[in-house]
C-alpha cells in the first residue's frame, strides 16, 4: 500500500522533560488508513516499537546526526478494526494466551496494586499474560506499562466495581538504551 507520512517531532517535549506518549498516541489514532507516522525523538524509542507493533505497524529507525532518531512507522497490514484508543483496547482480532498469573489486588492499599503488577511483569517472559482484579481503573499504571512496552486490556466487570486487567508482557530491550 502506498503510504504518506504524518510528521511528529517530540524532541522539544523530551528536551523539556515532558512526556510525549499521549501526543504520539493521539497522532496515531488520527492517522488515515493510508498514512504512516514519521517520528523524531532524542532517543531510540524501543518501548514504542512494541506498542505500535501491536497496532499493526512496522518500523524503520535511523539515527540522525547529533544523536537524534527518525523512525518511520508503516502500516504492515490493515489496521486492527477494534483498537480506537490505546494499545490496550480489546482487539477482537488477536488472541492472547491464557494468563499464567492471576492477582487479586482489590483489598490492597494504593498504590500497592500498581507496584505488584509491575513487579509481576518483571518476572514473566515476553508474550506471557497476567490478569489482576482491582477496585478501580488504574490510570497511573497505564503510562508505566506503556513505557515498558507492555500491552494491556481492561474493563469493569459486570458488577461495576471490580476492574479486571490483562497485561501482556512486551519484548525486553536488548540494551539498556531507553
Amino acid at each position: 500500500m502506498t503510504q504518506t507520512f504524518v510528521d511528529l517531532d517530540v524532541r522539544p517535549i523530551l528536551r523539556g522533560g515532558g512526556e510525549p506518549f499521549e501526543k504520539i498516541m493521539k497522532t496515531v489514532e488520527a492517522l488515515k488508513p493510508n498514512q504512516g507516522l514519521r517520528l523524531y525523538a532524542t532517543f531510540k524509542p524501543i518501548p514504542l516499537f512494541q506498542v505500535l507493533g501491536a497496532k499493526g505497524f512496522t518500523f524503520d529507525a535511523r539515527e540522525l546526526d547529533g544523536g537524534d532518531w527518525e523512525v518511520l512507522f508503516r502500516r504492515s497490514t490493515a489496521p486492527e478494526p477494534a483498537a480506537p484508543v490505546l494499545p490496550n483496547a480489546p482487539s477482537e482480532g488477536t488472541e492472547w494466551p491464557e494468563p499464567v498469573q492471576h492477582m487479586d489486588n482489590r483489598e490492597l492499599d494504593p498504590p500497592e496494586p500498581m507496584v505488584r503488577i509491575l513487579a509481576a511483569t518483571e518476572e514473566l517472559e515476553s508474550g506471557q499474560v497476567l490478569s489482576a482484579l482491582l477496585c478501580r481503573e488504574p490510570t497511573f499504571l497505564f503510562p508505566e506499562l506503556a513505557k515498558r512496552g507492555h500491552e494491556w486490556r481492561g474493563d469493569f466487570e459486570p458488577d461495576g466495581t471490580t476492574y479486571k486487567i490483562f497485561v501482556r508482557v512486551g519484548q525486553r530491550p536488548n540494551t539498556s538504551e531507553t
Binding site: 522533560g17 515532558g18 512526556e19 506518549f21 499521549e22 484508543v85 490505546l86 490496550n88 483496547a89 481503573e137 490510570t139 497511573f140 499504571l141 497505564f142 503510562p143 506499562l145 506503556a146 494491556w152 481492561g154 474493563d155
Partner: peptide
C-alpha cells in the same frame, strides 16, 4: 482506558 501522566506544573 487512557492513562494519567504527571501534571508538570
Amino acid at each position: 482506558m487512557h492513562g494519567t501522566n504527571l501534571s508538570r506544573w
